[in-house]
Write a protein that binds this DNA or RNA. Structure first.
Lengths: 223, 223
DNA sequence: CGACTCATTGACGTAGCTCAAGGTATGTGG
DNA sequence: CCACATACCTTGAGCTACGTCAATGAGTCG
């Protein structure tokens, strides 16, 4: 039984050789680059060789919602044909220098049709994405901000430990933008966890020192 | 450019003959039946011949989030292999009597592998679902309850008109559970729209009489 | 016509927002 | 290596949107 993860990585690793053998463009991005121009629908699909990208959406009232992170060995965005209005507003930015293989939709469609395993993996990718979004829309939505925070810390602890240490260089602004709460309110939650000796906070860093106490605050769908 | 829709229908209609030719069980559900036992992971995939099902999730604190509706000519749930914790908590109930073709995951996998068009359509289904969830998680989340309501009414008006009239026999409780706001607060929003002569409300019915005025209240991602 | 279910309105409490001020790391140029 | 700027974090104060509780009204049905 899988729990949600904000970090996508290695789910397409097995296709690296195959991808190399197919028509593509090798590309690199510098930290801070956009993977495609903001406010344009995406046209290209990237296999990430190295580096990490962050995917987010900006609301017309100024809020930023961070949706997910995409690291080496995965594909972003997931291949599909339809164009959706909201996708034009998605922004994907390199959090570190990146090396990618870039495919057009047409190239990827051909591979999708040709390679059985690839199409199965694409479904897998989407089901993972749906799972994360379901968790946020139908579960986290109904938790108060403190439980939301504990849930997120728990998921990061369980899922992401060791993968990359990008979660230990997030600012509190970033975390607030994942949870959809204000930075001030986030600080209050962290202060409480610090007082209860569950975490230690440093600049751009949160360390869980009492995982089992953290777990007790989490909601059922998280564990 | 597609906008979100809460109602899935006819996207697999072209496969009806094909589905009939493959191993399956023909089944029917009475209004109020569950498509599979609550609190169990789903094992079966249904092609809906007739009737409508509602998909929702109950939160441990008692809230109910209505996620989507599934009518004739579509498949539910979307075929995928992985098991996710939160899926066990999904509940799908027949809103009317239903006729379906039921497939096991194994049977559907075989079809997915065998039928090129089917796997492409499955991706399409998932991308539609992701689009809806993205809209809710990353956009509606940041609107106040009145804008949320206007957005929903607009989407129902534009997308669902004529499809089925199931949206005109929803209670205000149901609408509140789609939007994730309280019934009382929903009533206040509806009262405002009524006073501004944008809608007429009856028992289990909302009729938009001034669509362009409604549109003015909607947020950008909705239009 | 009584007994449901569904909708409306008022009163009140509070979680979480914004605004504002200050405190502490980190980095840079002189 | 210091001082100064900048980014990041913390805490307090006050406001408000929205939740809950409670009472009443208004359709629908056996």
């Amino acid at each position: 039984m899988l729990i949600p993860s904000y970090f996508f990585t290695n789910d397409f690793k097995q296709f690296y050789e195959y991808f190399l053998s197919q028509p593509h463009i090798k590309k690199s991005f510098k930290k801070g680059d956009y993977l495609w121009e903001p406010n344009k629908p995406f046209e290209k699909i990237h296999y990430i060789i190295s580096g990490v990208a962050q995917n987010y959406l900006e609301h017309e009232n100024g809020h930023r919602k961070i949706l997910s992170f995409h690291g080496s060995g995965t594909v972003f965005p997931g291949y599909h044909e339809q164009d959706y209005k909201i996708e034009s507003a998605l922004i994907t930015v390199a959090l570190s220098d990146m090396e990618v293989l870039e495919f057009t939709k047409v190239e990827f469609r051909r591979m999708f049709q040709q390679n059985q395993q690839l199409s199965a993996q694409d479904i897998d990718w989407f089901s993972k994405d749906v799972n994360l979004l379901l968790y946020e829309t139908a579960h986290q939505e109904y938790n108060n901000s403190f439980i939301k925070l504990c849930n997120l810390l728990y998921l990061l602890l369980v899922n992401e430990t060791g993968k990359q240490n990008h979660f230990n260089c997030m600012t509190q602004d970033d975390i607030a933008d994942i949870l959809g709460i204000s930075r001030v309110n986030l600080t209050r939650g962290l202060t409480r966890l610090r007082k209860e000796n569950i975490i230690i906070t440093k600049r751009k860093q949160i360390q869980v020192i009492d995982p089992s106490a953290l777990e007790k605050y989490c909601s059922l769908e998280t564990l």
